[in-house]
Design a protein around this nucleic acid. Structure first.
Lengths: 246, 246
DNA sequence: AATTTAATGTGTAAAATAAACACATTAAAG
DNA sequence: CTTTAATGTGTTTATTTTACACATTAAATT
C-alpha cells in the first residue's frame, strides 16, 4: 500500500487506490454499503452527499458508503457509516436495494447494498465543511458519481411510498412539532399540496399525536400547538387491512 | 479441485466443497442469488424447493440459488437460475432483500441477494424427481436449510403486500382463467376469505379483464366464463394516488 | 390602543368507495 | 325430471375521502 493510500486510510477516506487494492485483494469481488441519508430543514427535503475523491468522478457528489468489513453484517456496516458521518445512533435505517451491474464501479466488481436513512438535522452537528459533506435539496440532485443517481432515485421513490404507509416522517422532525411542520414535511416529500383541514383530520383520527400543551415560539403569526408522536399507540393501531388496491 | 467436485460442477450442482473452494478462491467473500419461486396449483400457493446437498443440512429443503458469476449482474444470475430450474424465460422476477449475516453460510462469508419469482406451473415441465426438486405448499414450509426460512418468509410477505397493490397474480395463472380461479389465488396468497360479489365487482370496475367469450370445460358444475388479463390497459390505468394510509 | 396581517383551528355537505347481504340462473350429475 | 353446486348479478348501508368557508388568535404595524 502506498504512503498516500495509508494516509488516506488513516483519515478514513477511501480513494480509488485504496478501494482498488481491496477489490484486488478479494480476488475481484467486493461488497459495499451506500447510505441515502435524508434530512428535513427549512421545509425542504435534503440528502447528505460527499464530494467524490475518485479521479474519474472528481468533484461530483456521491452517496456516503464504504466497503463491508469481514466481521460485520450489512446493517452493521450501514450503521457504522451513519455513525461516522452524522454522529447519530438509533436512526431510522432501511435496506432498499442491491446494485450489482458489472461495470458500476471503476475499481472493479463492487456490488453495493443501498440503505435509506432518516435523521433529524437538528441533532446532526457535524464538521460538514471539513469533510466536503453537504446537505442538498433533493430537487437539485442530479448527475451523481458512479450509479449513485440511480440509487438515490430508487431510495427517494421508496421513501415516498413508505411515508404514505408508515409514520416515518417523525424521524425527520424535532421531537416537538406543529401540524404545519408535519404537513410541510409530507408536501415536500411527496411533492404535492394537501388540504390543511383534511390533513389535520386524518392525523387526529389516527390518534397518535400527543398534545403536549405547548405552543410554537417566535413565529411571526399566531403560534400553533406542538405535538409529540406516540410510537406505542401506533404499534397497537397499525393497519392490518387486506384488500385489492391497484 | 477434487474429482468429485469436478463431477458435481459438471452436473451443475453446487456442493459444500465446490462453494467452499470458490469462497476461498475469492478471499473470503462470495455473492449468491437465491430465488423464491412461487407457483399456484390445485388452488394452493406453492414454492419450489430443492433438497440440500450440504452435510450440515442434509435432507433439509432449501431455495434455489447459485453463486453470482464474475461476468453477470444480479438479475442475470437470478434469470439464469430460473431458466435452469424451470426452463422458463420471461418470468416475473423481483429483487427482494439481501441477506448478509456473518455466519449465515457454513462455507464462509456468502452474502445472498433474494429474488421472488412467479411462474405458471402449467408451463413448468421439469425433471422434478431427478433433481430432488419439489413444489411445497407454502403453508408447510418450515425449517429450511441455512437462513432460507427467513428469506422465504420475507419473500412471502413481500408477495402478499405486492399482490394487493399490483396485478401480479396473473403471472401465476394460465392465460385463460375464471374469476373463481382468480379469487382462489388471492385467497390462497393472502390467507383470507373474500366476498365473491365484491371481488368480482372490484375486478370488473378496474376494467382490465378481457372477456374472451369462452367457458370452463369439464367442471362438475355450471361452467364459468374465462378471461384474459389486459396488461396494456393496466399500464394506462395504474393508480397514482397520493395520500396517507397507515 | 386600534388595526392589519397571516397564520391557526374547526364543521359540514357531497362524492366515492367498501362492505354486507340474497336470490335467480345454469349446466352437470344422478 | 329433479337435485346439486356452482355462476352471475343488484341494492342498501356504512365508511372514507374530498371539497370547501369562516371564526379565532397573536404578532406586527400604524
Amino acid at each position: 500500500m502506498s504512503v498516500d493510500a495509508q494516509a488516506d486510510k488513516a483519515k478514513n477516506i477511501k480513494t480509488l487506490t485504496t478501494i482498488q487494492s481491496e477489490v484486488e485483494d478479494s480476488n475481484g469481488l467486493a461488497l459495499s454499503v451506500d447510505c441515502v441519508i435524508f434530512g428535513f430543514d427549512e421545509n425542504k427535503l435534503k440528502v447528505l452527499l460527499i464530494r467524490s475523491d475518485l479521479k474519474k468522478y472528481l468533484g461530483k457528489w456521491s452517496l456516503l458508503g464504504d466497503l463491508v468489513r469481514p466481521n460485520e453484517d450489512l446493517d452493521g456496516a450501514a450503521y457504522r457509516i451513519l455513525k461516522k458521518r452524522t454522529g447519530l445512533s438509533d436512526v431510522y435505517l432501511e435496506q432498499v436495494h442491491t446494485f450489482g451491474s458489472i461495470n458500476r464501479h471503476p475499481a472493479g466488481r463492487v456490488v453495493t447494498v443501498a440503505y435509506c436513512s432518516l435523521i433529524n438535522v437538528q441533532h446532526h452537528k457535524l464538521n460538514i465543511l471539513e469533510n466536503e459533506l453537504h446537505w442538498h435539496d433533493v430537487t437539485n440532485v442530479t448527475d451523481l458519481a458512479f450509479d449513485h443517481q440511480e440509487i438515490f432515485d430508487t431510495c427517494y421513490r421508496r421513501l415516498q411510498k413508505r411515508i404514505q404507509e408508515h409514520p416515518l416522517g417523525f424521524n425527520l422532525l424535532p421531537k416537538k412539532f406543529s401540524l404545519r411542520d408535519l404537513q410541510n414535511l409530507y408536501e415536500a416529500i411527496l411533492n404535492v399540496k394537501m388540504d390543511r383541514r383534511n390533513f389535520r383530520k386524518k392525523f387526529f383520527s389516527m390518534d397518535f399525536l400527543i398534545d403536549i400543551d405547548e405552543m410554537e415560539q417566535d413565529v411571526p403569526h399566531r403560534p400553533g400547538k406542538l405535538y409529540k408522536f406516540n410510537y406505542e399507540k401506533y404499534e397497537k393501531k397499525k393497519k392490518k387491512w387486506v384488500g385489492i388496491d391497484f
